[in-house]
Design a protein around this nucleic acid. Structure first.
Length: 177
DNA sequence: ACCCCGATCGTA
DNA sequence: ACGATCGGGGTT
C-alpha cells in the first residue's frame, strides 16, 4: 500500500471533496497513527456555522490562508478541535476531523473531535502547522476509498440543513489492513 | 468592561 | 437532560 503524504493541491480542492476524500486516509501525529473515519465541512462566509462567517479574526485567521494548514481551536472551556484548511488562499474553509481509527497497538476507535485531540495531545500549540511539509504531522494517501454516510453536522445551531458530515460506514470493520 | 455562548463530553 | 469550564468576539 503506497502512503504518500498528501500535498497542497489535495487540500486546495473544494471543501466537500476534501472532506469526503479524507475518509480512509492515514493521519500521523507525532507517534500516533489513525485512519480518518468522520469529517465535517465548514465553508466560507455563507455558512453560518463556519467560524469565518463573520469575517477574519485572530482565532480564525488560518482559515483564510493557504490550504494544507492545521486549524486548531479551543471550545467549551476544555476541548480542542482539529481541522485542515481547504480551498484557495483567501477563501476561509476547513474540514473538521471528528473520528479516527487508531492503528498503533490494539486498534480502537476515537470518536469525537474533543476526545481525539485530548488523546493525541493536540492543543493550541498545533494551530497553523503546514501538514504538507511537517515531519511530525501529516496525512498520507491510502489508496482506500471507504463507503460513507452523509448527515447534518453535529452540535451546531445554524446551518443544520446542510448535509456536510461524512461518516465511514461500519468504521469498526472497514480497516484496510 | 461586560456578557453570552459555543464545530463537546461524561454523567444522571 | 444537564453541568463543567473559559476564551472569543460582539456589544455597551
Amino acid at each position: 500500500m503506497m502512503k504518500n503524504t498528501l500535498a497542497r493541491d489535495f487540500f486546495s480542492q473544494p471543501t466537500l471533496t476534501v472532506a469526503q476524500q479524507l475518509l480512509g486516509k492515514v493521519m500521523m501525529f507525532e507517534n500516533a497513527t489513525g485512519i480518518i473515519t468522520e469529517t465535517e465541512a465548514y465553508i466560507g462566509k455563507d455558512d453560518p456555522a463556519c467560524h469565518a462567517a463573520r469575517g477574519k479574526t485572530p482565532r480564525n485567521a488560518v482559515m483564510f490562508g493557504p490550504a494544507g494548514f492545521s486549524y486548531v481551536y479551543f471550545i467549551y472551556g476544555m476541548y480542542y478541535c482539529l481541522n485542515f484548511v481547504t480551498e484557495e488562499e483567501g477563501t476561509p474553509a476547513a474540514v473538521l476531523i471528528r473520528g479516527l481509527m487508531m492503528i498503533d497497538h490494539p486498534p480502537f476507535h476515537l470518536n469525537g473531535p474533543g476526545k481525539l485531540c485530548r488523546h493525541l495531545g493536540i492543543t493550541r500549540d498545533h494551530n497553523n502547522i503546514d501538514v504538507t511539509t511537517s515531519n511530525f504531522f501529516c496525512v498520507k494517501d491510502s489508496l482506500f476509498s471507504p463507503r460513507f454516510e452523509v448527515t447534518p453536522r453535529i452540535g451546531i445551531k445554524r446551518g443544520q440543513e446542510k448535509l456536510w458530515r461524512f461518516v465511514v460506514r461500519n468504521a469498526l470493520a472497514s480497516s484496510p489492513l
